[in-house]
Design a protein around this nucleic acid. Structure first.
Length: 144
DNA sequence: ATTCTCACA
DNA sequence: TGTGAGAA
């Protein structure tokens, strides 16, 4: 296990582009040291990036991730960190639940509309069937 | 291979 | 929340 990493090594390891990693740095979620312009990432930086990506997967905005990450190594009271993080988790859970309700409502709407469409088509088809015996012959003649 | 900036969705 | 292009 090495103690430092280049930006491309981290990108490869986590399956993200170097552009994205620089983007996170620009947003102040990462702060690698430099060696003549080149970024040098410590194991702490690597851990930070890993946590960042996990937060992203769980749907947190970068700003939220940033505040949690900063609390973590600002050595704020451990109790404060945990309380803050727990609160964020609960907020995220509520947000997802709301979205779930919205999706279910939209799905139910689609069901109603689709049912109207289908039944309407059924009435049109039965209308056609009533006249199809008369039209059928002429359609065959014009198509050939 | 890495850096930065500007533009763009 | 990133990507692409171009220059150094």
């Amino acid at each position: 296990m090495q103690e430092t990493y280049s930006i491309s090594e981290l990108g490869k390891e986590f399956g993200i582009t170097t552009r994205a990693i620089r983007f996170y740095e620009d947003k102040e979620l990462l702060s690698p040291t430099r060696q003549g312009g080149r970024r040098i990432y410590s194991r702490a930086d690597r851990t930070r990036l890993k946590l960042l990506l996990r937060g992203k997967r769980l749907g947190w905005p970068l700003e939220e991730i940033k505040s949690v990450l900063n609390m973590y190594d600002a050595g704020d009271g451990e109790l404060d960190q945990l309380q803050y993080t727990a609160k964020k988790i609960e907020q995220r859970r509520q947000q997802l639940l709301r979205q779930k309700q919205d999706i279910n409502a939209a799905l139910a709407d689609l069901d109603r509309i689709q049912n109207r469409c289908v039944s309407h088509m059924a009435t049109l088809n039965s209308c056609n069937d009533n006249h199809s015996s008369q039209n059928h012959q002429s359609q065959k003649e014009t198509s050939s």
